[in-house]
């Protein structure tokens, strides 16, 4: 069913590095924007920890990075060959 063709037969929007960069910088700008906005919006916090500046952004970003690194370490213990259970 799969039709493997030469890689450059169909040009996609992200084959152009400028578009990739545009997306990347848009993300950086959006992060900056929502971080700045944090100082202008009253958050009605339930917990003291929410009062920390840009709490949601920092917590999300740091925890995601920690998640990826922890999962990478987990591979050392849990990763086996694809046919491990079939042997």
């Amino acid at each position: 069913m799969s039709e493997h063709g030469p890689k450059d037969d169909v040009k996609g929007i992200f084959d152009n590095p400028r578009n990739v960069n545009l997306l990347k910088y848009s993300l950086y700008a959006s992060c900056l924007l929502v971080a700045i906005a944090d100082f202008f919006v009253d958050g009605h916090p339930y917990f003291d920890i929410e009062k920390f500046p840009v709490f949601y952004g920092l917590y999300g970003g740091i925890m995601c990075a920690a998640l990826v690194i922890a999962a990478k370490w987990m591979r050392i213990i849990v990763m086996r060959d694809e046919d491990y259970y079939d042997r």
Binding site: L27, V54, G57, G60, G61, C64, V68, D81
Partner: peptide, 27 residues
């Protein structure tokens, strides 16, 4: 904030090569 900074973490980890590649495996 939560989502965009998570996306930022993913982007930075991918660019820096830290993000684990997809590997044929059983976990």
């Amino acid at each position: 904030q939560l989502l965009l900074f998570s996306a930022l973490a993913f982007t930075l980890l991918t660019i820096s090569g830290i993000y684990p590649p997809e590997l044929r495996s059983t976990n």
